[in-house]
Amino acid sequence: MISFNDVSKRYPNGHEALKHVNFHLEKGEMAFLTGHSGAGKSTLLRLIALIERNSGGQIIVHGQHLGKMPDARIPYLRRLIGVTFQEHRLLFDRTIFDNVALPLVIAGFRHQEIRRRVRAALDKVGLLEKEKSYPITLSGGQQQRVGIARAVVHKPPILLADEPTGNLDPVLATEIMGLFTQFNQVGVTVLIASHALSLIKSLGYRTLILEQGSLIGDTYPTPL
């Protein structure tokens, strides 16, 4: 589903954010991406969603070579990917419902369908009763859950999460990770960038470790 082949990313200022990264994520697989801040986790996620383009190597997402993809096709690639952000990035002048509906509106779904799917997604993250509220009235954990609902509402085959538990206490963090595992169980390929090492360990999934732009570890959980 996601394939990195000798991928490098060098910024115009000379900083090399990723160096010769190789890995392959199967369809329906779930993995964590970890490392110190500045190790290149966010850059790697950005390359998958073509928010930035890699400067070397080859990336294949959902069977498509990103290097050859013209700019006009990028929106359609992004519709296959749900993303969540550490800082949530909700739109504060819109209700929770409208925030979650955004990917469906973009994809041109019909009104009734949007209503059905948004409510289902909000129900999934336990915030159905908040659909008419505004993001400002929600706690950090709730905002993250709204972000997750928005990322999965259009049922993308790929889910990318950047530090989803960054500012949350351990209980909430476990809850959020539980949501991701649930989506993975229904076949979504999930890649989560996180530095919550103990939490990652306790969940027992494949973990990619980045250090200064190089992939230094690709560990699979040892069967108990």
Binding site: L102, I106, H154
Partner: peptide, 16 residues
């Protein structure tokens, strides 16, 4: 600006 960025992240075309 933020709204436009979010729209682009979720696959909005330029026309949209």
């Amino acid at each position: 600006r933020e709204e436009i960025e979010i729209h682009k992240l979720f696959g909005a075309t330029d026309a949209f």
